[in-house]
Design a protein around this nucleic acid. Sequence first.
DNA 1: ATGTGC
Length: 362
Amino acid sequence: MSSRVSIFASPTSWIESGAVDQCHQVAALPGMRHVAGMPDLHPGKGAPIGAAMTSSVLYPFLVGSDIGCGIAVFPIRLKRPVPEKLAARFPDLDVVDHSFLDAADVPGGYTESLGTVGRGNHFAELARVGTVFDSDHAERLGLAAGDLVLIVHSGSRGLGERILRAHTEVHGAGPAQDPAAYLAAHDDAVRWGSLNRRIMAARIADALGADHEPPIVDECHNSVEIRDGLYLHRKGAANGDRRDVLVAGTRGTPSFLVAGHAGEEASFSVAHGAGRKMSRADALRRGRAKHTVEELRRTPLGSLVVCGDRQLLFEEAPTAYKRIEQVIGDLESFGLATRVVSTVPMVTYKTADVARERKGRR
DNA sequence: ATGTGC
């Protein structure tokens, strides 16, 4: 059985060779039919990130540990948004607030860390709609230039990790022997991730004294689905089959809400973000020489980044990522998606700001 | 990515 690798990136887009190698390694796995690399493709742990991988057997490691990770967009209204004041009022999304869990029907019964953002590339951001590229589509979503939105990127925390570990402890990187059982646990994690994002949005809106609405976009990018009798794994790739997707920029550049039009050749998928250009280790080493903490906490866009962890701040520096405009341009030129609006960060929460808390307690 | 691994 032959299997193909297709990379949806223009020759001028930077794709690390290691990530393409990983695509071919995955394509050589038993039962594999097709690997579609998105323009944000970069190397991951064992499998590429930014890829949709289709096979006749289910490989849990291709989804990874953060099953159900995704990005949701919630319209929010605020009277006079001042980034400095709002940043100071953001809730501590590193810890659970039990008052938001009472009414929640928690998938998998896993209540630990529900409503918390986690680490890595996860964030919760207050942003304003910048450029409107497709006014009809934006209007259907209820969006106009200047409107405020909450963007929440997070996943299933310890739950997804537990599900993958239960599989790998027995089968390693091998396929699921009981796909239905894995899928049932996976679906719990997908629902949990979505609930996690909603609870965070509610916590933020409450802390800012704002009204917010249900999400207008909520697509996960680590998942597996059965499509045409095959397992379609997505790792750092969102469902782009006539779905709207928020493709995340960086903590210092805009993001793009796009309309997905991806067909079978692209495994019905679109990119999930800018994609890392540097490893975390490289970003930390080079970032320390290149940036100050101050410039990473107050971006050229005038937005603020709440992040009490200096290492994470450097790892997540905008320069550690590819240019989001290039990624979006590739999605458009390959016909996978079209721009609807851009969003411009005002306050991005990464992790609690220890410096601020210490000051407040004095 | 992860209540984290050798």
